[in-house]
C-alpha cells in the first residue's frame, strides 16, 4: 500500500497541472506558441516517435559514455589526490577548474578539437559530470574517522593499505552520492554538447526552436528529463546494491 502510494501520490499534481494547462491553453488564456497544450506534446511524442527514439538513444549513449568516463577517471583522480596532502594541494585546484569552466563557452573548442558528433557530446558530458565525483570522493576519503586512521597507523598499515582498505571503503557512500549528482549532470552536459555539435535530443531541441515548433521542444525536454531520472534511478539502484552488500545501507530517505 505504501509503495503504491509512493507511485500514485506524485502523479496527482502531474494530472492536475496537465489538465489545468490543457484547459488554460484551449481557452486561449495562455498562447499555444508559448506553451503547448499537454495533448499537443503527446501528439508529437506519438507522431515523431521514431525520430525522438533515435535522438533519445543517441543522447543516452553519449551521456552514459561521459558518465562512465567521469566515474572511472574521477574516482582514479580522487584516489591519486587522497594519497598524500602535498599531491592534493598541488593538483586539487585543477579539479576545481572543471567545475568553474563555462561549458557553453568551451563547447565550440571541443567541436574544433573533436569535430561534430558523438565525441564532442561525450566530452561535454564528461567535463560537466566529473567534478562532483572528484569532490565527493576526496571529501569522503578525507573525512575518515580519525580513530580508524590512527588504528591503521598503529597496525603499521602502508599508505596504500590505508587508502584502499580504509579510506576508499569509508568513502563509498560519499562516492556513490557523487555518482548520483554526476548522473543528472551528464545528461545536461550531453544536451549542451548536442546544441553545438548537433544530434540527439539537444539537436532536436535546437532545430525545433529554429522552426518555432514549441510542441516538439517540449516533447524533447520531457524526454531529456526522463533520461535524467532514468540515470539517477540506475545509480540509486547501484548505490543500494553496493551498500546493502556491505551491510551499511540506510533505507531512510534523504
Amino acid at each position: 500500500m505504501t509503495k503504491a502510494r509512493s507511485v500514485l501520490f506524485p502523479m496527482i499534481p502531474l494530472v492536475v497541472i496537465s489538465v489545468g494547462f490543457e484547459f488554460l491553453i484551449r481557452r486561449n488564456f495562455i498562447p499555444s506558441f508559448l506553451v503547448p497544450a499537454p495533448s499537443q506534446v503527446w501528439d508529437v511524442l506519438v507522431t515523431d516517435s521514431a525520430m525522438l527514439k533515435e535522438a533519445f538513444v543517441q543522447t543516452a549513449t553519449a551521456a552514459a559514455a561521459g558518465l562512465s568516463a567521469s566515474m572511472i577517471l574521477g574516482l582514479m583522480f580522487a584516489l591519486f589526490l587522497s594519497f598524500s596532502n602535498w599531491i592534493r594541494q598541488m593538483f586539487y585546484p585543477y579539479a576545481v577548474f572543471f567545475q568553474t569552466v563555462p561549458l557553453i563557452a568551451i563547447a565550440p573548442i571541443l567541436v574544433i578539437w573533436l569535430g561534430y558528433g558523438m565525441p564532442t557530446v561525450i566530452a561535454s558530458a564528461f567535463i560537466v559530470s566529473i567534478f562532483p565525483v572528484i569532490a565527493n570522493s576526496v571529501l569522503g576519503m578525507q573525512s575518515t574517522d580519525r580513530n580508524l586512521v590512527d588504528l591503521f597507523r598503529l597496525m603499521d598499515a602502508s599508505p596504500l593499505q590505508t587508502l584502499f582498505r580504509l579510506r576508499l571503503p569509508h568513502a563509498m557512500p560519499a562516492i556513490l552520492g557523487g555518482f548520483k549528482i554526476a548522473a543528472g549532470l551528464a545528461v545536461i552536459g550531453a544536451i549542451v554538447g548536442e546544441f553545438i555539435s548537433g544530434g540527439g535530443l539537444g539537436g532536436v531541441i535546437d532545430v525545433a526552436r529554429n522552426q518555432q515548433r514549441i510542441d516538439r521542444v517540449f516533447a524533447a525536454v520531457l524526454l531529456a528529463s526522463l533520461l535524467g531520472i532514468l540515470f539517477f534511478s540506475l545509480i540509486s539502484i547501484l548505490n543500494r546494491i553496493i551498500l546493502t552488500s556491505r551491510g551499511t545501507y540506510d533505507s531512510t530517505p534523504t
Binding site: D145, N147, L148, D150, L151, L154, D156, L166, P169, H170, M172, R246, G247, T248
Partner: peptide, 19 residues
C-alpha cells in the same frame, strides 16, 4: 617494538562495512 602495541579507543573504532 611499536608493532607489539595495541590500542582500544573509547568508541570501539570498528570498520562498519566489515563483519
Amino acid at each position: 617494538p611499536k608493532n607489539e602495541i595495541s590500542f582500544v579507543f573509547q568508541d570501539a573504532a570498528l570498520l562498519p562495512w566489515k563483519s
